[in-house]
Design a protein around this nucleic acid. Sequence first.
DNA 1: TGTGATGTTGAATG
DNA 2: GCATTCAACATCAC
Length: 258
Amino acid sequence: MPELPEVNTFQRYFDASALQQRIARVDVHDDKIIRNMDGASFADRLQDRSFTGSYRRGKYLFAHLDNGHHVLLHFGMTGDIKYYEDPLDRPRHERFAFVFENGFQLGFDDPRKFARILYLEDLQAYIDSLPLGEDALRISEADFLALLQTKKGQLKAFLLNQQHLAGVGNLYADEICYQTRIHPAARIEELSLDEQKLIFASMQQILNYAVEKRAYYKDYPEDWLWQWRVEGFVPADGRGVVKKATIAGRTTYFLDGL
DNA sequence: TGTGATGTTGAATG
DNA sequence: GCATTCAACATCAC
């Protein structure tokens, strides 16, 4: 699930549950997703610390610690967090959990283990090392248009590239193409200025709406592609037919025959 | 049983 | 240096 709106929802959940509490210990069941140290070291670094805030950029959530360091939570394809007290509520694929002194814990669940957890002493150095583009909901229209001028290639590849723009993933990229009625394989160097502005406006509208709905997709409008990712679907305006193909290396549902 | 899945990275190629 | 393609990562669900 985790694209920008989902990670935004995780952030709100994290802020509402995990801040300003002493971490009594960290239980690490599987340290595969902790990428820059082993589980014991990670637990050692976090013990007796507390989280004081968080910062999200794209799909990256940085948890701020009271010593000025950060913990990166990147959810990969299947990451999730759950705050609970009863051990019976432990997520099935919990890889580690921050155990707070109030008896509750924040478990990090991740069946596929594609998540990336890092203990960071220098947040900015890490972001610079990626490098990570501006957040898709914080970039200005002027900067977005200027960025587009410097790139070429397929629209969907651009939207998915986190170095250019951070936060849009496979499903929201398809949603943007669907709602703008611009083909995901369109070459960005051939888009008109109006089309470029339309993409920006649509991206803002879609991501803001999803954030507002806390990424609860069942509340998404019927005229979104979201629940119609099925070949053969014809939108209400009768423009095109939904087709499935691989574009920019990812499974893509798009309107064919525009 | 085989296939594909909301992400990222690194290697190879053009 | 860019853009593109593909394999790899690991597990589950259909």
